[in-house]
Design a protein around this nucleic acid. Structure first.
Lengths: 342, 342
DNA sequence: CTGAAAGCGCTTACAG
DNA sequence: CTGAAAGCGCTTACAG
C-alpha cells in the first residue's frame, strides 16, 4: 500500500542518465537524442513510473486541479452541472473537486481559505440569490478567493459582480412562463418558488411582475409563495395556498421553482380535487429526467446544465473576463392547457 | 489573480523568527513560547497567509485529497453516493474528486495511472458487474492502483476481489422482490434490467432464479430482459416484451433494474392498455426522490446511498480491510397489488 | 524554546 | 545533446 516509491532518481539511475534528462523525455523535449529517449522510456515503462503531480506543482505553480462550489448535489440539477464541469475538466487534463456552498458563504474567519490552501488552478462558484447580508459575505469571500486563483461564476449572478460569469436569466424565464400561461387564457397565475432561507425568489419575482404588468393583470400577493426547492416543500406550499383560498380564487396556472417543486404541487392539487391540466396548468423548470414520465408529463424549461458546466470550465481556463447568459428553451408537454372557463 | 504569493518566509521575516518557528505555530506545537506564538499568529492573520497544502504534501507524503471512481453521475443514484462521500471526506478534512469509470476499466496502457499521478490519499471505486474480459482489466487496474494508494470498493463487488468493500446484495434484493410479488399471488414475473454492455444483470439473475425456484415456479426466458439503465431503455424494453408476447402471456409483475427503468416500464405498459397496479405490479430500485410522485407512487428499495458514500470514506480512512454489506430496505407504495384473477 | 540545514520530487535556466 | 545546481514551500530531526 502506497509503495509507489519510485522517483525520477530511480529512473535516472537505472537508465544511466541525469534526472534532467528523464524530466526532458517526460515532457517530450525534442532535444533528447533518440537512443537515450528510448532507453529512458523503456525504464519508465518497466518500472511503471509516473511523475508525482504534486512535486510538479511545486515548480510549475500549477496543480491541474479545479474546484467547483455548489449548494447541494442532491438536486439533480446541480449533479448535471457538476457532471458537465467534471467532464470538461478531464478533457482538458484537469481533475475536479466539489466544495460545499457554505465554504464561501458562511460567516466566520475566511471560509474561502479552505479553497485557498488547495492551490487550485481555478474554481467555479455556483451562486444562488442571497439576501443582502449574505451577499456581503459572498462578495468578501469571492474577492479573497480571487487573490489565490481565477474564478468563474454561474447561476443567479448579481449583475454588479465583476467576475467572468455565465448567468441564468431567471427574470426573463419567469416572464416567459407568465406569457406562456397568459397566451393560454390564464389570468390567475401563481408563482411557487424561492428557497425560504436565501430568497432565490427575487429574480423570478421581477420577471413575474413584469409579465403580469405587460398584460395589465394585477399582482395578487396570495399567489406568490415562498418555499424550499424540494417536492415536499412544493407540496406543502401548494397545500397551504389552496387551503387558505376560496376555490373560486384558486389559481389556474402555476409557475414552480423547479420540477421537483412542480411534482409536489401536482400532488397537492390532486388531493384538493384539481385535475392537471384541465383545472390547473403547471410549469416546472430544469427538465429533469423524470419530467416526461410524470402524469401528466410536465412542461418544463431545459437549462442545458451539463453544457453549462462544460462551458464554465472553458471560460475558467481561457482566463477571459466574459459574461455570458446561459441558454434555455421551452419543453412543452401535457401539464399546460387552456384556462378553464369561469 | 493568483497573487497569493505570501510564503512561510514572508511570515518568518515579518515576525522576526525562523521558518521553523512559523511552521511550529502553524501546527500548534506547544513548544513555542507564548509571546512568539502571538506575534507570529498576528502576522499570519494580517497577511492572510495560508500554507500551501501542496508544499506540505511534498514532505508529509499526504495530500488530504481523495478520489472516487463512478460510472456516471447523471444517475441520481450515483449523485447520492458522491454527495455522501464528499461530505464524509470534508468532515475528515479531505477534499473529494470525481473520476470517470473508464479510468479504471478502459483498455490501453495503465488507465489507473491517471489516478496514480495525483497521489491521492485514497480512492473509492464504485464497481458494476462486468463481463469476464473487462473483469480482467478491472482486476489489473485495481492491483496497480493499490500500489499507489489504499482503495475501497463499493457496489456490485465480485466476491473474490480481496479489497475492503461495501457491496450490494443484488441477488438477495432481487430474490426478495420475487418473493414480494409471489406473496401477492403473482406467478408471471419479469425481470427488466442489466446494462446491455456490462450485463449488470448477473447478480439479479441469480436472485431471480432462486426466488422462482424456491416457489417452484418456472423461469421463462421471455420474461428476462436486458436493457440500459435509463427510463427510455426501460420503456423500449417493456414495449418490446409486450409486443412480442400474446396478452395472455403478459407478465403481471415487473422487477425493474432501477426506478428510472421502472418509470419507463409503467409508461410502456400504459400505452399497451395495462393499468398499474390493477393489471401489472411494478417494483423499482433506488427509491429516487421522484418515486413517491409518480402515478401510482412507485414501490422501491431504499439503498441508503448517501450513507453508503460516507461509510466508504470512513472505511477508506480507517485502513481496515473489512468487507461489509450495504443496507437496504423496502419502501412499499402503490405500484404493487394482488395479482389479477386469471 | 529556537534556528540552520537537509530533504520531499520535480523543473528549468545555465554551462558545457 | 546532456548534466550540475538552484529553487519551488514546506516539515522535521538535530543542535544548541
Amino acid at each position: 500500500m502506497g509503495q509507489s516509491g519510485t522517483t525520477i532518481y530511480d529512473i535516472a539511475e537505472e537508465a544511466g542518465v541525469s534526472i534532467a534528462t528523464v524530466s526532458r523525455v517526460l515532457k517530450g523535449d525534442s532535444s533528447v537524442s533518440g537512443k537515450t529517449r528510448l532507453r529512458v522510456k523503456e525504464v519508465i515503462a518497466r518500472r511503471n513510473y509516473r511523475p508525482s503531480s504534486i512535486a510538479r506543482g511545486m515548480t510549475s505553480k500549477t496543480t491541474h486541479s479545479l474546484g467547483i462550489v455548489l449548494p447541494k448535489l442532491l438536486n439533480p440539477n446541480y449533479a448535471m452541472i457538476f457532471t458537465g464541469a467534471s467532464d470538461g475538466a478531464r478533457q482538458a487534463g484537469y481533475s475536479m473537486s466539489l466544495f460545499p456552498w457554505r465554504s464561501v458563504t458562511e460567516q466566520g474567519e475566511n471560509p474561502a481559505m479552505l479553497l485557498a490552501e488547495r492551490r487550485l488552478d481555478g474554481v467555479i462558484v455556483c451562486v444562488e440569490y442571497l439576501p443582502p447580508d449574505q451577499q456581503e459575505q459572498l462578495r468578501r469571500s469571492l474577492a479573497e478567493l480571487q487573490q489565490y486563483m481565477p474564478i468563474v461564476l454561474i447561476g443567479c449572478v448579481p449583475s454588479d459582480l465583476e467576475y467572468p460569469a455565465i448567468s441564468y436569466n431567471m427574470a426573463e424565464i419567469t416572464r416567459s412562463a407568465v406569457e406562456e400561461l397568459i397566451s393560454l387564457g390564464h389570468e390567475k397565475i401563481a408563482l411557487i418558488g424561492g428557497m425560504e432561507e436565501d430568497r432565490d425568489q427575487h429574480r423570478r419575482d421581477i420577471g413575474y411582475r413584469q409579465g403580469l404588468e405587460n398584460a395589465h393583470l394585477p399582482c395578487v400577493d396570495s399567489y406568490r409563495v415562498w418555499c424550499g426547492g424540494t417536492a415536499e416543500a412544493g407540496e406543502a406550499a401548494m397545500d397551504q395556498m389552496l387551503s387558505s383560498l376560496l376555490p373560486s380564487h384558486w389559481p389556474t396556472g402555476i409557475i414552480a421553482l423547479n420540477d421537483m417543486v412542480a411534482m409536489g404541487c401536482m400532488a397537492a392539487a390532486r388531493r384538493h380535487g384539481l385535475r392537471v391540466p384541465e383545472d390547473l396548468s403547471v410549469i416546472g423548470c430544469d427538465n429533469l429526467f423524470c419530467a416526461p414520465y410524470l402524469l401528466p408529463a410536465l412542461t418544463s424549461i431545459n437549462m442545458h446544465q451539463q453544457s453549462l458546466g462544460r462551458e464554465a470550465v472553458t471560460l475558467l481556463l481561457s482566463g477571459e473576463n466574459r459574461r455570458e447568459s446561459a441558454l434555455w428553451e421551452w419543453v412543452r408537454r401535457d401539464s399546460c392547457a387552456p384556462a378553464p372557463r369561469r
